[in-house]
Lab assay of single mutants.
Amino acid sequence: MEVRTIKVFTTVDNINLHTQVVDMSMTYGQQFGPTYLDGADVTKIKPHNSHEGKTFYVLPNDDTLRVEAFEYYHTTDPSFLGRYMSALNHTKKWKYPQVNGLTSIKWADNNCYLATALLTLQQIELKFNPPALQDAYYRARAGEAANFCALILAYCNKTVGELGDVRETMSYLFQHANLDSCKRVLNVVCKTCGQQQTTLKGVEAVMYMGTLSYEQFKKGVQIPCTCGKQATKYLVQQESPFVMMSAPPAQYELKHGTFTCASEYTGNYQCGHYKHITSKETLYCIDGALLTKSSEYKGPITDVFYKENSYTTTIK
Results as ranks from 00 to 15, higher is better:
residue 1 M to I: 07
residue 2 E to H: 06
residue 3 V to S: 12
residue 3 V to Y: 13
residue 4 R to I: 14
residue 6 I to Y: 07
residue 6 I to P: 06
residue 7 K to S: 13
residue 7 K to M: 14
residue 8 V to R: 03
residue 8 V to C: 13
residue 9 F to E: 10
residue 9 F to L: 12
residue 10 T to S: 08
residue 10 T to I: 15
residue 11 T to N: 10
residue 12 V to Q: 11
residue 12 V to L: 09
residue 13 D to I: 03
residue 15 I to T: 13
residue 15 I to V: 15
residue 18 H to T: 09
residue 18 H to E: 15
residue 18 H to D: 10
residue 20 Q to P: 04
residue 20 Q to N: 14
residue 21 V to H: 14
residue 22 V to S: 09
residue 23 D to A: 12
residue 24 M to R: 13
residue 27 T to N: 14
residue 28 Y to Q: 05
residue 29 G to Q: 08
residue 31 Q to C: 14
residue 32 F to S: 04
residue 32 F to H: 13
residue 32 F to Q: 13
residue 33 G to K: 07
residue 35 T to K: 09
residue 35 T to R: 09
residue 36 Y to M: 06
residue 36 Y to S: 05
residue 39 G to A: 14
residue 39 G to L: 06
residue 41 D to N: 07
residue 41 D to W: 04
residue 43 T to M: 10
residue 46 K to S: 12
residue 46 K to H: 14
residue 47 P to G: 08
residue 47 P to D: 05
residue 48 H to E: 14
residue 49 N to H: 12
residue 49 N to W: 06
residue 52 E to W: 12
residue 52 E to G: 11
residue 53 G to V: 06
residue 54 K to R: 13
residue 54 K to Y: 13
residue 55 T to N: 08
residue 55 T to M: 07
residue 55 T to K: 09
residue 58 V to H: 09
residue 59 L to E: 13
residue 60 P to W: 09
residue 60 P to G: 05
residue 61 N to K: 11
residue 61 N to R: 11
residue 61 N to A: 12
residue 61 N to P: 09
residue 63 D to P: 14
residue 63 D to E: 11
residue 64 T to Y: 11
residue 65 L to F: 08
residue 66 R to P: 02
residue 66 R to K: 09
residue 66 R to G: 14
residue 68 E to F: 00
residue 69 A to D: 06
residue 70 F to W: 08
residue 70 F to A: 06
residue 73 Y to T: 03
residue 73 Y to H: 01
residue 73 Y to C: 01
residue 73 Y to S: 05
residue 74 H to F: 01
residue 74 H to M: 07
residue 75 T to C: 09
residue 76 T to D: 09
residue 76 T to C: 14
residue 76 T to V: 11
residue 77 D to L: 03
residue 78 P to I: 09
residue 79 S to E: 15
residue 80 F to H: 08
residue 80 F to T: 04
residue 82 G to P: 14
residue 83 R to T: 02
residue 85 M to S: 06
residue 86 S to Q: 14
residue 87 A to H: 09
residue 88 L to V: 00
residue 89 N to Y: 15
residue 90 H to D: 08
residue 90 H to I: 10
residue 91 T to S: 02
residue 91 T to P: 08
residue 91 T to G: 01
residue 92 K to V: 10
residue 93 K to D: 07
residue 94 W to N: 02
residue 96 Y to K: 01
residue 98 Q to N: 12
residue 101 G to W: 01
residue 101 G to M: 09
residue 102 L to M: 14
residue 103 T to F: 05
residue 104 S to V: 06
residue 105 I to C: 00
residue 106 K to L: 14
residue 106 K to F: 12
residue 106 K to H: 11
residue 108 A to D: 02
residue 108 A to S: 07
residue 109 D to E: 08
residue 110 N to I: 02
residue 111 N to L: 03
residue 112 C to Q: 04
residue 112 C to P: 08
residue 113 Y to V: 05
residue 114 L to V: 10
residue 114 L to F: 08
residue 115 A to T: 11
residue 115 A to M: 14
residue 115 A to V: 12
residue 116 T to A: 13
residue 116 T to L: 06
residue 117 A to L: 00
residue 118 L to S: 04
residue 118 L to T: 07
residue 119 L to I: 08
residue 119 L to T: 00
residue 119 L to A: 13
residue 121 L to T: 06
residue 121 L to I: 13
residue 122 Q to P: 06
residue 122 Q to L: 03
residue 124 I to S: 04
residue 124 I to P: 03
residue 124 I to G: 08
residue 125 E to P: 09
residue 125 E to G: 06
residue 125 E to N: 08
residue 125 E to V: 02
residue 126 L to M: 05
residue 128 F to L: 05
residue 128 F to M: 08
residue 129 N to S: 07
residue 130 P to Q: 00
residue 130 P to L: 03
residue 130 P to R: 05
residue 131 P to Q: 03
residue 131 P to F: 03
residue 132 A to S: 05
residue 135 D to W: 07
residue 135 D to C: 06
residue 136 A to H: 10
residue 137 Y to I: 07
residue 138 Y to L: 14
residue 138 Y to E: 15
residue 141 R to H: 07
residue 142 A to M: 12
residue 142 A to S: 12
residue 145 A to G: 05
residue 146 A to I: 03
residue 147 N to C: 10
residue 147 N to D: 13
residue 147 N to Y: 05
residue 148 F to Y: 01
residue 151 L to H: 01
residue 151 L to Y: 05
residue 152 I to H: 03
residue 153 L to D: 04
residue 153 L to I: 11
residue 153 L to F: 02
residue 154 A to V: 02
residue 155 Y to N: 03
residue 156 C to M: 07
residue 156 C to V: 13
residue 159 T to L: 11
residue 161 G to A: 09
residue 162 E to W: 02
residue 162 E to M: 02
residue 163 L to S: 06
residue 164 G to R: 03
residue 164 G to M: 01
residue 165 D to R: 06
residue 166 V to F: 01
residue 167 R to N: 06
residue 167 R to W: 01
residue 170 M to F: 03
residue 170 M to E: 01
residue 171 S to Q: 06
residue 172 Y to C: 13
residue 173 L to Q: 03
residue 174 F to D: 02
residue 174 F to I: 03
residue 175 Q to W: 05
residue 177 A to W: 02
residue 178 N to F: 04
residue 178 N to R: 09
residue 179 L to Y: 05
residue 179 L to M: 05
residue 180 D to V: 07
residue 181 S to F: 10
residue 181 S to Q: 15
residue 182 C to G: 12
residue 183 K to H: 09
residue 184 R to H: 00
residue 185 V to C: 02
residue 185 V to K: 03
residue 185 V to P: 05
residue 186 L to P: 00
residue 186 L to M: 13
residue 187 N to M: 14
residue 188 V to M: 10
residue 189 V to H: 10
residue 189 V to M: 10
residue 189 V to S: 10
residue 191 K to S: 15
residue 194 G to Y: 04
residue 194 G to D: 02
residue 195 Q to C: 15
residue 196 Q to F: 11
residue 197 Q to W: 02
residue 197 Q to T: 15
residue 197 Q to C: 03
residue 201 K to G: 08
residue 201 K to S: 09
residue 201 K to N: 12
residue 202 G to Y: 03
residue 202 G to K: 04
residue 203 V to S: 10
residue 203 V to P: 10
residue 203 V to R: 12
residue 207 M to T: 13
residue 207 M to N: 03
residue 208 Y to P: 01
residue 209 M to A: 15
residue 209 M to T: 15
residue 210 G to P: 07
residue 211 T to V: 03
residue 211 T to Y: 01
residue 212 L to I: 05
residue 212 L to T: 12
residue 212 L to N: 06
residue 214 Y to F: 09
residue 214 Y to E: 00
residue 215 E to G: 06
residue 215 E to C: 07
residue 217 F to R: 03
residue 217 F to Q: 06
residue 217 F to D: 04
residue 217 F to C: 10
residue 218 K to P: 01
residue 219 K to H: 03
residue 219 K to V: 07
residue 222 Q to W: 04
residue 222 Q to C: 03
residue 224 P to S: 13
residue 224 P to I: 12
residue 225 C to P: 00
residue 225 C to N: 07
residue 227 C to G: 00
residue 228 G to D: 03
residue 228 G to P: 01
residue 228 G to Q: 05
residue 228 G to F: 02
residue 231 A to K: 03
residue 232 T to P: 03
residue 233 K to R: 13
residue 236 V to S: 03
residue 238 Q to Y: 00
residue 240 S to P: 03
residue 241 P to V: 02
residue 241 P to H: 06
residue 241 P to K: 10
residue 244 M to E: 01
residue 244 M to F: 03
residue 245 M to R: 03
residue 246 S to C: 06
residue 249 P to I: 08
residue 249 P to T: 07
residue 250 A to W: 01
residue 251 Q to K: 10
residue 253 E to F: 04
residue 253 E to L: 03
residue 253 E to C: 06
residue 255 K to W: 07
residue 256 H to Y: 08
residue 256 H to N: 15
residue 257 G to H: 00
residue 258 T to A: 10
residue 258 T to D: 05
residue 258 T to K: 06
residue 259 F to C: 01
residue 261 C to R: 02
residue 262 A to F: 01
residue 262 A to G: 00
residue 264 E to M: 07
residue 266 T to Y: 03
residue 267 G to N: 15
residue 268 N to Q: 03
residue 268 N to L: 13
residue 268 N to G: 09
residue 268 N to D: 13
residue 269 Y to S: 15
residue 270 Q to W: 15
residue 271 C to F: 15
residue 272 G to W: 00
residue 273 H to G: 07
residue 274 Y to E: 07
residue 275 K to H: 04
residue 275 K to W: 03
residue 275 K to M: 01
residue 277 I to N: 00
residue 278 T to P: 02
residue 278 T to K: 09
residue 279 S to K: 03
residue 279 S to T: 03
residue 280 K to C: 10
residue 282 T to K: 08
residue 283 L to C: 06
residue 284 Y to L: 14
residue 285 C to M: 08
residue 286 I to W: 11
residue 286 I to M: 07
residue 287 D to Q: 03
residue 288 G to M: 13
residue 290 L to A: 14
residue 291 L to I: 13
residue 292 T to C: 04
residue 292 T to F: 11
residue 294 S to D: 09
residue 294 S to M: 15
residue 295 S to P: 07
residue 295 S to K: 15
residue 297 Y to S: 03
residue 298 K to V: 14
residue 299 G to Q: 01
residue 299 G to D: 12
residue 299 G to N: 07
residue 302 T to R: 02
residue 302 T to N: 02
residue 302 T to P: 00
residue 303 D to N: 10
residue 305 F to T: 00
residue 305 F to L: 08
residue 308 E to N: 04
residue 309 N to P: 14
residue 310 S to V: 15
residue 312 T to S: 11
residue 312 T to C: 08
residue 313 T to V: 10
residue 313 T to N: 14
residue 313 T to A: 15
residue 313 T to E: 06
residue 314 T to K: 15
residue 314 T to N: 15
residue 316 K to F: 15
